[in-house]
């Protein structure tokens, strides 16, 4: 089984990329060519395009972008994992609770979701900032996840509702299979596909969201580096300062794409294994 995964070139490549990023995150201070918050030369090295000495160029206060990208991987990957985990966890819990509940409770739970979806997220985030000030990365990631799971909950509930009436579930139930077993064997595996998509979209959203928070004074505290804070510096000038946009964006794409491919192959692998 694992041998088959190992022969799948897409899986191997994606897993290698993810593994490499994890290694980078762990070893960043050793790998980075310069200290990530060192202002190298404020007079001559500000916003300089990539060169032999600075492969990814330098930023507005002459810090090495490559070093900041490598060191930033640590915060970003951690935040991404926590935010996505929080948002998926809450979404699945809430959505399946609604789907399995009696009608009145289902309605109450879903109307709560309506309310949460309608609430202006900007107001919510600013009031969190007002209450707690600038948060460290992990609580920040939890906040991001906790304010972004409402769509997932709705999706999960809709899926479960639809699945519950599907022929194979009905058949299993008719054969007398206990409900938890039906849920585990037949319903949950079918949820994995849409959830994987939701997860990859949520992962992709964390970095730009964090970049946006920087403008509210709510992102990662300066001078710490994260991909969002890198992007925030130049996202509105991708033409003039392309190296400050392109490299963080590429890094993000590589992580999201690899994570998606790995997730997709694993699902297919276990899905088939389960049915076989």
């Amino acid at each position: 089984m694992t041998a088959r995964l190992r022969r799948d070139p897409a899986f191997v490549l994606a897993a290698a990329i993810l593994g490499a990023w994890v290694a980078v995150a762990l070893l960043a201070p050793q790998l980075a060519p310069y200290p990530s918050d060192l202002q190298l030369d404020l007079t001559r090295l500000r916003e300089s395009a990539p060169s032999a000495a600075h492969w990814f160029g330098t930023d507005g206060v002459s810090r090495d972008v490559l070093s900041r990208l490598l060191v930033g991987a640590r915060v970003t990957l951690l935040m991404g994992a926590i935010a996505v985990g929080t948002s998926l966890g809450l979404g699945v819990l809430w959505g399946s609770a609604a789907a399995l509940s009696p009608l009145w409770l289902d309605r109450l739970l879903m109307r709560t979701i309506d309310a949460c979806l309608a609430f202006p997220r900007l107001v919510l985030l600013l009031s969190v900032a007002a209450a707690f000030g600038q948060l460290p990365p992990i609580p920040l990631a939890v906040v991001l996840g906790a304010t972004g799971w409402f769509g997932t909950a709705r999706l999960v509930r809709a899926e479960l509702r639809a699945l519950a009436e599907r022929s194979w579930v009905v058949a299993a139930r008719a054969l007398g299979a206990p409900e938890p077993r039906i849920l585990r064997r037949h319903v949950l595996p079918a949820l994995v596909g849409p959830l994987a998509v939701a997860a990859s979209l949520a992962l992709a959203a964390v970095v730009p969201l964090e970049a946006g928070l920087t403008f509210l004074g709510f992102g990662v505290r300066a001078p710490a580096a994260s991909w969002g804070s890198l992007l925030a510096e130049a996202a509105d000038r991708p033409d003039a300062l392309w190296w400050m946009v392109l490299f963080p964006a590429l890094a993000l794409v590589s992580v999201v794409a690899s994570a998606t491919v790995v997730g997709d192959r694993l699902r297919r692998h276990f899905d088939l294994g389960d049915r076989a």
Partner: peptide, 11 residues
Amino acid sequence: MTIEGLDFAGF
């Protein structure tokens, strides 16, 4: 020196 960023109204 720690940098405390705030949106303008909060500042």
